[in-house]
Write a protein that binds this DNA or RNA. Structure first.
Lengths: 396, 396
DNA sequence: CAAGTTTGTAAGGTAATGTTACTAACAATA
DNA sequence: TATTGTTAGTAACATTACCTTACAAACTTG
């Protein structure tokens, strides 16, 4: 009855070691003897724990590779069962909603895309309906759930604030809503933060041990940071509101100029239109879209190049602030504007004049999937935490 | 012989729980029965572990409070022995060197101050000599050592870079130097980072669970951040170089204006002198020092108020960037300029116009001791980590 | 087919914990 | 002053979960 650590703690620790070894070896199978070597545990201990895990359906003997041609008694090749745990992931955006189901290894076994409805409630209903349907064939249901939202999520109040592009979030408790409908650990997170996590996992989880930032540039501008492998949210959860950054000291008479006033997609279009009106020569129409503007700038179009220069200068200044304050090892740009290589090259060029040792800049490779990949990564953290205690703790 | 976790791991875990309980109860003594209740361990287990700890000199029965008037058999009041572990702490500044010895609870049992010599090597020799002398009466020597340095410390190369005010650091390996002379875990850290840690511990270790920043404003300007209880250093260890922050987009012809160009102590004096030359009226001399300038500004002196306004505006802009990027819950200002309440009030006033939800701003209460207190805090972390393994692991 | 090599299991021993039951030491109270 | 009640600490035993040693199983190689 005593809650002291003498009952199952050691078992849990060693079970975790075994599962960790299996995860890091994936997709290679491991024999029990191999696990013993890798973890430092004795063979009988490994056998006992693996037996329980096999009973619980977490591991199994692979039916592939019957005899691999090596000397000695052939090993029983154990592997984690991918379908032992599932997570539901979603990215609720202002224009589209992505919903998916991921297995134990983070592979998406189902995925759907929807157009965002009128408000936040409709969006959550969409997610719920789609997830329920996708989980139809999955036994065990889902164990973790992570949803990206286009605003600042406050866990203490369970509210999404400043989701300006998707109304109705301020009167909705998304965490409670989803927890009532799914028997899973639910996590709600800002979409830019998830995108940062997604880009990080894409790079193989170790960005030179340092810290990592992802800047999303589209309709708005956001910043997600990963510090020591964990998302950084700041004191009130509103870290990374890069769009509101002031580009110069505000003068009493004038309105302050923010980064979003210069470098967001609508601002870029507006500035280009104005450049044309002001008589700059260009092969493009005044109502051209951002990719066209950037493409034209790359080939020497005067008006487009002037706008790109303005935009890159503003972003480079913001990134210089980021470097001096947070010193990230690598910065990835995503979103409609940010993922454009022309944009990234221009920012890199500008930044090198402002900062002595600039970080690596790169364009996102994940595109619109970034936040969803990040949501998978976040879900897997919960799965990793809860897996062994659930398997080894309950049966007693 | 197997390195698997079955030998002493559980004992170590439980020993750590006991020590943690004793630390958090300090200065209240605890009976073994009370420890058992607090940790969830059984009474015999606690007795066994406490016996070993008492043998090793880590805990003892307090001789105070013989019978505290409560019912039942009187408890044996156990307490941690303050002198069981000592750490050496130092703050090497450009003008002064502070050296101290702290006990298990972080109380300074000895402290000395010196004027900084010609170069970094002399400074380290000072620290070594002073520490050796202070440790004369201490048995067991020191177990941890933390030294603050006025530059960026790179653990990978064991070098202090950009210590512009104290020459000779770039050809010195301070970690190795000290490790050779003391049988202790040595940690070298930027002094502003340590000051941040010091201010944090002063506040009782829990700044609303959020993140915390300390800005030092003196000859130079630096920023230290604590994220989730740990110091944040950034990818290359150079996070917090706030002094180099650009206040406005650099124009091709002009030299860029940094925060240090406006808000450091020398810049403030220079600007005030120029204001006088430009004909602003003032009751002060053109060569007035910063505290006098700020005091005059508070009483309405025109020239001084103008300079304070400039300085506060620049700092407020920098803090606004800090808020949007890192969102700290609280910002403490230290250093000769920063700890001045007039300065902090002016910055707070300016900041409220730039940021919707500004963090708490406060003047440092630790003054010149901030980094030393932070060094103590850092040392105690190591002590806490190594204490139980050393006590319970060796005797076997 | 024997020898060698590796996997996996069985048996026994050990470390550390928890449980139960006891003794020790005191305050309160009759 | 003796009894009762309460809490602290200890002794003895049972349990958990580990490691070690020894051995059986299964395959490759010569």
């Amino acid at each position: 009855m005593g809650e002291g650590s003498g009952s199952g703690v050691l078992r849990l620790l060693n079970g975790q070691r075994i599962v960790d070894a299996l995860f890091s070896a994936h997709p290679t199978r491991m024999s029990r003897a191999g696990i013993a070597r890798a973890t430092g545990l004795s063979k009988p201990t490994v056998s006992a724990l693996i037996a329980d895990m096999e009973l619980a359906g977490l591991v199994r003997i692979s039916d592939e590779s019957p005899s691999s041609g090596s000397i000695g008694r052939p090993a029983a090749p154990y592997e984690l069962v991918p379908t032992a745990r599932h997570s539901v992931v979603a990215d609720v955006g202002a224009t589209k909603i992505l919903v998916g189901v991921a297995d134990l290894f983070g592979n998406l076994v189902a995925e759907q895309e929807f157009t965002t409805g009128p408000d936040a409630r409709a969006a959550l209903e969409r997610v719920t309906a789609a997830a329920s349907e996708m989980l139809r064939g999955v036994d065990g249901g889902c164990h973790a759930m992570c949803v990206g939202v286009p605003g600042i999520y406050r866990p203490d109040r369970d509210r999404v604030e400043q989701a300006l592009n998707l109304p109705g979030f301020d009167s909705l408790a998304p965490g409670a809503y989803l927890s009532e409908r799914f028997d899973a650990r639910v996590h709600v997170e800002n979409d830019v933060n998830l995108a940062a996590l997604g880009e990080l996992t894409r790079m193989g989880d170790e960005p030179a041990d340092g810290d990592f930032a992802a800047i999303s540039v589209g309709t708005g501008i956001g910043l997600g940071m990963v510090v020591g492998g964990d998302l950084y949210r700041g004191g009130t959860g509103s870290a990374g509101e890069l769009g509101s950054l002031l580009l110069s000291p505000p003068e009493p008479g004038e309105a302050p100029v923010t980064l979003e006033d210069v470098a967001s997609a609508p601002s870029i279009r507006k500035r280009f239109g104005r450049a044309i009106e002001d008589g700059h020569r260009s092969g493009l129409d005044a109502s051209a879209d951002v990719p066209d503007i950037f493409a034209a700038a790359a080939t020497g179009d005067a008006a487009a190049a002037a706008v790109l220069d303005e935009v890159a200068a503003a972003m480079a200044l913001a990134v210089s602030h980021l470097c001096l304050i947070a010193d990230p090892t690598r910065v990835v740009f995503g979103g409609g504007v940010g993922a454009n290589p022309v944009f990234v090259d221009a920012v890199r060029d500008r930044l090198s004049r402002l900062v002595a040792a600039p970080p690596e800049l790169a364009a996102s490779t994940l595109g619109r999937q970034a936040a969803l990949v990040g949501a998978v990564s976040m879900s897997l953290r919960f799965i990793h935490e809860s897996l062994v205690p659930e398997i080894l703790g309950d049966q007693q």
